[in-house]
Design a protein around this nucleic acid. Structure first.
Lengths: 106, 106
DNA sequence: TCAATAGATAAGTTTCTGCTTAAGTGTTGT
DNA sequence: ACAACACTTAAGCAGAAACTTATCTATTGA
């Protein structure tokens, strides 16, 4: 999933899709690369769960799956919060120390 | 930055560091790979801004930089919110349609 | 001073990525 | 029916990534 977001091209695709669904060729249009290349990126996004696609007739329509986005967001948030809680505990611990006796911080 | 988080080994390192700073060998300990490999991962994390290191004496201590984490979190959040706002607008639009005349939904 | 420690640097290997071109397959408008 | 369209599939290739081993350089404690 982070793997899928690692590539700049795929990130631009996600940005595009966050503004609304698109067909494969619409997705490909802003890029200079060949269509198969775009489709390969699309497959990565699909396997990662970030994007859902549905083919009707001869056109495949791509849609963002925000659930997958939320997961990545949560992972990052958990690490960040974990760290910040640690800092808080550390601060509290230092405050409780009798060492350098200032009653509060300045 | 997403590039840096793309690798599972590096993600585990970030998890470890979210629970507190560590030296290079402490970081390397849970892994089976060679130390140079770990150092290489560490360099990637450092260049991405996710991790800060400082060497004192002969031991290098590694710390998470939550600022970088926040940036990634924001990027994801922006896409997700963008998409959800779109859905809201769409819903409002459909509600305003005179087409199938039910006054509210249900 | 000297040996163990903690890590840095270099070079080489293998595997994975991101792309390309070339040649299909199923749809659709005329 | 048939040509244009919207992708698919397959094969191949160059460069990047993720390791490895081997060698080197500073600290540090005895």
């Amino acid at each position: 999933m982070f793997q899928a977001l690692a590539d700049p091209t795929r990130r631009r695709m996600v940005e595009r899709l966050s503004r609304g669904p698109a067909s494969v060729s619409e997705l490909a249009e802003p890029f200079q690369m060949s269509l198969p290349a775009v489709v390969q990126h699309l497959q990565v996004l699909e396997q990662s769960g970030l994007v859902t696609t549905e083919k009707v007739g001869r056109v495949r329509t791509c849609t963002i799956d925000t659930g997958a986005l939320s997961m990545a967001e949560k992972w990052i948030n958990d690490r960040r919060i974990g760290w910040e809680r640690r800092l808080d505990r550390l601060g509290a611990f230092l405050d409780a120390l009798p060492g350098s006796s200032d009653k509060a911080d300045k």
